[in-house]
Structure formats: C-alpha cells, structure tokens
C-alpha cells in the first residue's frame, strides 16, 4: 500500500504542476512526460527483462507515423490516432521480436539497431508518402481531443499527464504481478527460468510487444501534442534517448524513467546557458552513469534504503 501511495503522490504532484508552472516550463514538462512514457516502455524490456535494445526509435516512429499519416492524409481525429499509435508500436515490436529474439546480448543489440536503421531508411525511401527527412506538420483537425485544442497549453499538459499516469500506474501493476516476476526471472537467469516451466521466447516477445506499444503511444502523443512528424524520430538518437533516461534514473524501477528524463532536461537547460554543446553532455552522462552508477539513481537508492521499491 505504501508503494501505491508514493506513486500516486507522484501522479498528483505532476497534475498540480500543470496549474502552477509558467507556460514555458509547462510545455517542457509535457514533453518530459511523453518521453517518460517512451522510457517506461523501454524500461520494461531493458530494465525489467534485461533486453538491451538499440532499436526502440523504430517503435516510437511507428507510433508517430501510425498516428500522423492518417491524420495528414485522411483527416483522422486525435483519439483514434493515439490508439493507432499504440497498436502500430506494438505490432512493429512484435514482428521485430519474432526475429530479433532468436539472438541475445550483443547480437540482439545489433539486430535491433539494424532493424531501426532499415526502418529509418524506409521512411526516407518512401518520402512521397511519409514526407521523408523534412517530415510534415500535423493539421489542426488532427490535434483536437474531445473538443479541446491540443496545441494550447493546458489541454496539452493534461493529455500528456493522463497518458503518463496511465502508463506509470499500469507499469507499477505489471511489475508487481505474476508476469512481472517472470520478467525479472528472465533478466536474472534465463536458463533457470526455463527449467521452472517458463517459455523464454514467448514471455520476452510479450514484453517486447508491451514495450513497443508504450513506445508507439509515446510517439503518437508526441506527434499529436507537438504537431510534427519526421524521419528524424526514427534515427539512432531516439533509441539512445530512452536508454539514457532509464540508465540515469535507474533501470528496473518504476519511477526511474521519469526521474532520468527530468534530470536530463534540467541538465541540458542549465548547460544551455553555458554552452550549446548538449550532445557532449548526453555523451558524458552516458559514460559517467555506466562507469560510476550502473544501477542509476533510484537503483542505488533502492540498494541502500528502500529494499522493496518496485
């Protein structure tokens, strides 16, 4: 119960921030929450199940385009577009997983990287349909949700908050369920899990589909809330981003992805006053976290103080 209470407090705090923050920071916070949804999806695969993927940009982009293209070409509304994004990410992750999950470790990383790269190049190749490198702006008709205009501050924040909260609490429920226990078992010792009657392939495939669905939802939300879709969302940078948030905040913790995203945004914001070299900061944080805090911030705190933290 304490666990649920503390996580619900995070959700409530974020809701309050929507009404307290000035517009510039509110927009940033909305962006953070959407990217945290992406990172939470990534965390299911990497943090809980031990599947280190370098191709999650593919699932994020699948969500953006599954939502964005019907809006652009056929004038679809935001609500069905978000659902399409969720499905798009899940389906693409399922197909990828069917092949990639025959490998493990370094091979799995490279296979997912290659699939994502092929996806990115495919978006460029069919630029007549996808808008290619330049992408496209989502028309206003596709940015209306239940009568609210998502290009305005408060509706945008509240939509991001709702999607974040749903994913956040669903993750908490999942990792505390029987299946959550199986995920951790696969991460810790796959062969032992197999000898307890667990089918590693189907279990990992299910995780990857869930992870891809969350990533796709995040992608769709990003497109709908901020009004732009482009092939750059399928580049390797967008595979590294959720990994960075998860590593920094704490892999295999429910709140780690949010914490990592907030910290990275804050860091780049502060550094922006000093230098424009934000890529350097991303790189340096990756190296420093891997070297000195491989379990991330919440992971280190859990080891020391809160043993039961999910």
């Amino acid at each position: 119960m304490k666990v649920w209470a503390s996580h619900l407090a995070v959700v409530a705090l974020l809701l309050a921030l929507g009404f307290l923050l000035p517009p510039y920071h509110a927009t940033n916070m909305a962006r953070i929450m959407v990217l945290a949804v992406f990172a939470m999806g990534y965390n299911l695969a990497f943090g809980y199940t031990g599947l280190l993927s370098l191709g999650h940009a593919l699932f994020f982009a699948a969500g953006i385009y599954a939502a964005g293209l019907p809006i652009w070409h056929w004038g679809l509304g935001a609500a069905p577009a978000l659902i399409l994004g969720l499905l798009g990410g899940g389906i693409v992750a399922g197909v990828t997983g069917l092949l990639a999950l025959r490998t493990a470790g370094v091979s799995f990383m490279i296979v997912t990287l290659m699939f994502a790269q092929a996806g990115y190049l495919t978006l460029l190749y069919f630029n007549g349909v996808t808008g290619g490198d330049e992408g496209f702006a989502l028309p206003a008709s596709g940015r209306m949700l239940f009568g609210a205009d998502l290009s305005t501050d408060l509706p945008r924040y509240l939509t991001a908050w709702a999607l974040f909260s749903a994913t956040f609490l669903a993750t908490l429920a999942l990792v505390r369920s029987r299946f959550g226990r199986v995920m951790v078992a696969l991460r810790e010792n796959e062969e032992r899990a197999r000898m307890l009657g667990i089918n590693p392939f189907t279990a990992k495939l299910a995780v990857l589909v869930l992870s891809g669905a969350a990533s796709g939802l995040a992608g769709a939300a990003y497109g709908v809330l901020f009004g732009y879709a482009g092939a750059s969302f399928a580049t390797i940078q967008y595979s590294i981003l959720p990994m960075l948030y998860v590593l920094l905040g704490g892999a295999g913790t429910v709140a780690g992805p949010l914490l990592g995203a907030v910290l990275m945004f804050a860091l780049i914001e502060v550094a922006n006053d000093l230098t424009s070299a934000w890529l350097f900061i991303v790189g340096a944080v990756l190296v420093i976290v891997v070297l000195f805090a491989p379990k991330g911030i919440l992971g280190a705190l859990r080891d020391r103080f809160f043993r039961g933290l999910p």
Partner: peptide, 30 residues
C-alpha cells in the same frame, strides 16, 4: 516442466537477487 518433469540444478541456481518467496512463487506459477 509443465508436463511434470522437474530438474534441480547440480550447482545451486536460485535467483540470488529475489526473495525466497519470489523464487518459489516462480516455480508455482510455472
């Protein structure tokens, strides 16, 4: 395993990071 053939490892192979309860719960589930 699900048909009823259980194997216990020669080298102790429990999940060291999980609680005793979770270790056994995994077996019950599987």
């Amino acid at each position: 395993v699900r048909k009823g053939i259980a194997y216990t490892f020669q080298i102790t192979s429990v999940f060291p990071g999980l609680s005793v309860f979770d270790n056994v719960a995994l077996a019950v589930q599987g």
